[in-house]
Write a protein that binds this DNA or RNA. Structure first.
Length: 858
RNA sequence: GCCGGAGUGGCGGAACUGGCAGACGCGCCGGACUCAAAAUCCGGUGCCCGUGAGGGCGUGUGGGUUCGAGUCCCACCUCCGGUACCA
């Protein structure tokens, strides 16, 4: 008889809800330590929960339950990142208000999460779409606006025609939209920008103290992209203007043989001559038309046009031609460069393409083959006033920069790749900007007491006939007056991007009902920062950088007391579908080895059962024809592949405890791992074994020495593993314990009770049920975690290995307290060892207490 | 190209600061129970040679350090993730 999970699980879920077991009261005893465990809140999609969600959620739930039992005040909330495109797309198609769809999806998600037995405090639930919530998102935006961190700019933006909106740089991957993989084009538009660049240095520096995966910190560092160099002004021959460039290699200034300005550079119009104008204009038009994707794809061959003008190199007075090319980006540095083809790969390629001179100023390379970008000694770098010749790169940089500064020709400069955050979207389903455009052209904030500013009712969710965002469809909403000045005004029609709401939700959980403030300062002080934050690595730069930025702004405003919101971050690895064995066939049906497949579309593929696959060498081959290699691979779960596992089905078949246990038993949390239904059955069998263990007669006699050792060893192991988030090995240890205890004839309460407590964070429903069977009237959720007795762990005797020069020779039982010297003596006394040593000279004796003895003899 | 991470049985994965590689689970093989099956229980299971006792080889590859290396060092290969004209 399998254990009745379908009775037990709903029973305890109802109990927890009814008894508010996981409620974290507003007025906790703040003398006790706190622990804030946070999950990245989900977007409540229409397709419901996916097995990837409960992975991180189970990990945090185990830690939350464990910390509660360890006496911490635990904050473990859940909510919804509920603005987003799918609900709006659905609204476009059906006319259903996105709020309706969103609410439905949230209800479904909540039910699914509750069926997994997570110990969230549901009274703290927040949704970014809730007016009581986005009131404060708007409030924070006004803070940014007040501080000059939000501004409007006419800027070339990433316009995505398919999504009908602009995207931030971070949302564009290889010239395509991160969501939906649609092409992106550059288009100048009026947009709201947030000045995240003002925080670049702090966002970079404060990474150092965070307990985050090194890879994520590195990605953020790369994204911020700090570089140190100099700005240098080049006079333009025959023009009043000067051309300013940014370079990280001022040491190579004597090697500059031409210059390049970006096609969007403001000086370009002045640089062209009558002869070059048609070609330059043509080139600029073509560059503007190109999507980012095309620019990237064409990156291999350099293109460009000579402008007709010359610049003067400030170090040697040399006249060098100014070109324009799209390999120079307007958005970085000054949008213009000095080209040093001898010591920069891109300039080298360009110089070769257009036959421009290449000059060596750093020795050590072979410029006939490639640019030399390494370190070396400066050559050909002197004028009447200064010489860099003979110096190394680092010294030269400092010397030339100082010289430029003294001559007023340039100065040292730090640059960042990070650009300002494009913060507006031309959509309906997002937070309205609380801003008014007055008839005099100024922008005024909506007064605080009018927040939240609600989105207008509209007849359709499409852009307006004039191409304005959907909000412009409602003229009564759109046209208003500014209460401060009485002037006629038009409301801002853009909406905020989805990231806005997720930038600060972790603060709202702390004080979710507060309608006077975003958060009560006392509560903030107690609960922040988040102690443990778990979520997917896909948010490495986007959400995590934005949230850090807003947090620093709120810190500057005095709203929060800590500089960084998330102390420890852990990324859970993706869960892939089951391993699939695929056989490929030619169009004529002949089987083909997987290693020969270049383009999958030229072949037909057939999924084989595991029994058809045989391991041969490094790969799997077809059982019926071992000459044919199969492809054995676990793929991402996707609807189109049909390999999606629905957690509801798993819960129905094996129960929530089995799902939780399996997700943790699969392997280390951070790792990518394939799903296996057989694996779920394995942990389900384990839970059944536990259930049967508790059918043994329960006794009040105390444990014998061996039982005590097992129990205390398990307490130690499980506690340490949860602290280290090694949930898989904690479960393995519990399995070992149950395998051993299964051989007992009766079950001492002294062993049963701690075991149930240890199991309960992992399999909480079974934990509660067994706890009740043990005669307890109340939930175990707040029962103290058991302590272990170090003394109970030690064995009287241990088996050690005796090696002679590294080869195993004998095994002997020794008292576990034996010292190194005693071990060597005991070892030598062993007849096999003595025999092996006769006639040999002992060179060295090594003994590791409790492990082994190694006698080196020749 | 650059940055980050990882390579251990048929599979997922264990192995503390260098100390008996393969815990635990899956799968497979054999046995018990059963009319039979499922479930459950017991035993076995890295690979190769050997009937056997036993022997040899084994943590991506090649070197090195060490009494001893999955673990440390050097070089390389493969895979995964990120990023890509950032001057």
């Amino acid at each position: 008889m399998p254990y009745p999970f379908s009775d037990i699980e709903p029973k305890w879920q109802a109990y927890w809800q009814q008894h508010q077991t996981f409620r974290t009261p507003d007025d906790v005893d703040t003398t006790r330590p706190k622990y804030y465990v946070l999950d990245m809140f989900p977007y409540p999609s229409g397709s419901g929960l996916h097995v990837g969600h409960p992975e991180g959620y189970t990990a945090t739930d185990i830690t939350a339950r464990y910390k509660r039992m360890k006496g911490f005040n635990v904050l473990h909330p859940m909510g919804w990142d509920a603005f987003g495109l799918p609900a709006e797309q659905y609204a476009l198609q059906t006319g259903t208000h996105p709020a309706v769809t969103t609410e439905k999806n949230i209800n479904r998600f909540r039910e699914q999460l509750q069926s997994l037995g997570f110990s969230y405090d549901w009274q703290r639930e927040v949704a970014t779409t809730d007016p009581a919530y986005f009131k404060w998102t708007q409030w924070i935006f006004l803070k940014l606006f007040e501080r000059g961190l939000a501004y409007e700019a006419e800027a070339p933006v990433n316009w995505c025609p398919a999504l009908g909106t602009v995207l931030a740089n971070e949302e564009v991957i290889n010239g395509r939209s991160e969501r939906g993989d649609h092409p992106i084009v550059r288009k100048p538009m009026r947009q709201w920008m947030l000045k995240i660049t003002a925080y670049a240095e702090r966002l970079l520096a404060d990474l150092d103290d965070l307990d985050w995966p090194e890879s994520i910190k590195e990605m953020q560092r790369n994204w911020i992209g700090k570089s140190e160099g100099a700005e240098v002004d080049f006079a333009l021959d025959g023009l009043e203007a000067t051309l300013r460039v940014y370079t990280t290699r001022p040491d190579t200034l004597f090697g500059a043989t031409y210059m390049v300005v970006s096609p969007e550079h403001p000086l370009l119009d002045q640089l062209v001559t009558d002869e070059t104008r048609p070609a330059v204009q043509d080139y600029r038009a073509k560059a503007a038309m190109k999507s980012d994707l095309e620019r990237t794809e064409l990156a291999k061959t350099k293109s460009g046009v000579f402008t007709g003008s010359y610049a003067v190199n400030p170090v040697n007075g040399e006249k060098i031609p100014v070109w324009t090319s799209d390999y120079v980006l307007i958005s970085y540095g000054t949008g213009a460069i000095m080209a040093v083809p001898g010591h920069d790969d891109r300039d080298y390629a360009f110089a070769n393409a257009f036959d421009l001179p290449i000059r060596e100023v750093i020795s050590g390379g072979d410029l006939s083959k490639e640019a030399f970008t390494g370190n070396g000694v400066l050559v050909n770098s002197a004028n009447d006033d200064i010489s860099l010749n003979g110096l190394e790169v680092t010294e030269s940089k400092a010397k030339i920069t100082a010289w430029l500064e003294s001559k007023g020709l340039g100065q040292g400069k730090v640059n960042y790749k990070l650009r300002d955050w494009l913060f507006s979207r031309q959509r309906y389903w997002g937070e309205p900007f609380p801003l008014l455009h007055l008839d005099d052209g100024t922008v005024a904030p909506v007064p605080l007491d009018e927040l939240p500013l609600m989105p207008p009712a509209v007849d359709e969710y499409k852009p307006s006939p004039d191409g304005d965002p959907p909000f412009a469809r409602n003229p009564e909403w759109l046209n208003t007056t500014d209460p401060a000045t009485g002037r006629p005004a038009r409301r801002e029609t853009n909406t905020m991007p989805q990231w806005a709401g997720s930038c600060w939700y972790f603060l709202r959980y702390i004080d979710p009902q507060n309608d006077q403030a975003l958060i009560d300062p006392e509560k903030e002080k107690y609960w922040m920062p988040v102690d443990l934050y778990v979520g997917g690595a896909e948010h490495a730069v986007l959400h995590l950088l934005y949230a850090r930025f807003w947090h620093k702004v709120l810190y500057d405003c005095g709203v929060v007391h800590c500089k960084e919101p998330f102390h420890r971050l852990v990324n859970q690895g993706m869960i892939l579908g089951e391993v699939e064995y695929t056989l490929f066939r030619n169009t004529d049906g002949t089987p083909v080895s997987a290693s020969e497949i270049r383009d999958e579309h030229d072949f037909t593929s057939e999924r084989l059962p595991e029994s058809e696959a045989v391991k041969k060498g490094d790969s799997f081959v077809w059982k019926q024809d071992p000459a044919i290699q199969l492809r054995a691979k676990a793929n991402k779960m996707s609807k189109s592949r049909g390999n999606v596992i629905n957690p509801d089905d798993v819960v129905k078949q094996y129960g929530a405890d089995s799902l939780r246990l399996y997700e943790m038993f699969m392997g280390p949390l951070e790792q990518v791992k394939p799903w296996s239904m057989k694996g779920v059955e394995g942990v389900y069998r384990f839970l059944n074994k536990v259930w049967r263990l508790f059918e043994l007669p329960l006794t009040d006699t105390s444990c014998d020495k061996e039982q005590k050792r097992l129990v205390h060893g398990l307490i130690k192991k499980v506690g340490e593993d949860i602290e280290g988030m090694r949930y898989n090995t904690a479960i393995a240890a519990m399995m070992e314990f149950v395998n051993a205890a299964g051989k007992w004839s009766e079950l001492p309460r002294e062993a049963a009770e701690p075991f149930v407590l240890l199991l309960s964070p992992f399999a909480p429903h079974m934990g509660e049920e067994l706890w009740e069977k043990l005669g307890h009237a109340e939930s175990l959720a707040h029962t103290p975690w058991p302590d272990y007795d170090e003394e109970a762990l030690t064995l009287d005797s241990v088996e050690i290995l005796v090696q002679i020069t590294g080869k195993p020779c004998a095994r002997l039982d020794v008292p576990s307290t034996a010292t190194a010297d005693e071990l060597i003596n005991l070892a030598k006394a062993h007849p096999d060892v003595a025999a092996a040593l006769t006639g040999k000279t002992i060179r060295k004796e090594i003994a590791v207490p409790g492990r082994l003895v190694n006698i080196v003899a020749t």
